[in-house]
């Protein structure tokens, strides 16, 4: 990747450079830093840590997760498939008189439909989560970084990708240091 000059301060992005990784001392520090980064208008950046920080969604300006809609529609589809299927099998295609009950009854179809709705909703939620988080992803530039493995342990990192229009290696590095980063390093692709 060559130097870009289409943006005012987007210079100095070296070839194969993924971005800057900044380490923070604790959850409070990284929360404040995230607030500052959002205000500063960064777009391709993220915070990494061993657990979801409360208040981080607001600090990073994240919108309500749409993963619930996957579950909702999954459930609705599951329910409809089950009811329609049972109706077709027991009423249309192969009617059997059982216990003096109607061939198709919403009551006896309900347990199966309910289970299928939950099954579909759960699978759809899980699938929606994978879609929204971009997982599974086997390779990631950050996995190559020496200290990044600590993110699942007890460390908090902020990563700003070089793709960000505001990215400038030195300026951003300095900015990260002013907002409390303990250590800022460059991550390569």
């Amino acid at each position: 990747m060559t130097t870009e000059s289409n943006n005012t301060n987007s210079v100095g992005c070296g070839a194969g450079e993924y971005g800057l990784i900044a380490e923070f001392a604790g959850p409070g520090e990284v929360l404040r830093a995230a607030e500052r980064l959002r205000v500063a208008g960064f777009r391709f950046w993220d915070v990494f840590g061993p657990y979801p920080l409360p208040g981080m969604c607001a600090a990073m300006g994240l919108k309500r997760s749409p993963v619930g809609w996957f579950g909702f529609f999954g459930g609705v589809i599951g329910f409809i498939i089950a009811v329609a299927g049972i109706w077709y099998l027991n009423e249309v295609h192969y009617p059997l008189p059982i216990g003096g009950k109607p061939f198709f009854s919403p009551f006896s179809a309900f347990p199966t439909a309910y289970e299928l709705a939950i099954l579909f909703a759960a699978i759809a939620t899980f699938g929606g989560l994978l879609v929204l988080t971009g997982l599974p992803r086997v390779r990631h530039p950050l996995f190559g970084h020496r200290r990044f493995a600590l993110a699942t342990r007890d460390r908090f990192f902020v990563v700003i990708e070089s793709a960000d229009p505001n990215y400038h290696r030195e300026n951003t590095q300095r900015f990260l240091e002013t907002i409390g980063a303990v250590r800022v390093e460059v991550v390569m692709m």
């Binding site: 993220d46 990494f48 969604c57 997760s65 993110a151 699942t152």
Partner: peptide, 10 residues
């Protein structure tokens, strides 16, 4: 490939 990103956690 979980990274612990807050966007993922969200």
């Amino acid at each position: 490939g979980w990274t612990g990103s807050q966007r993922q956690w969200h």
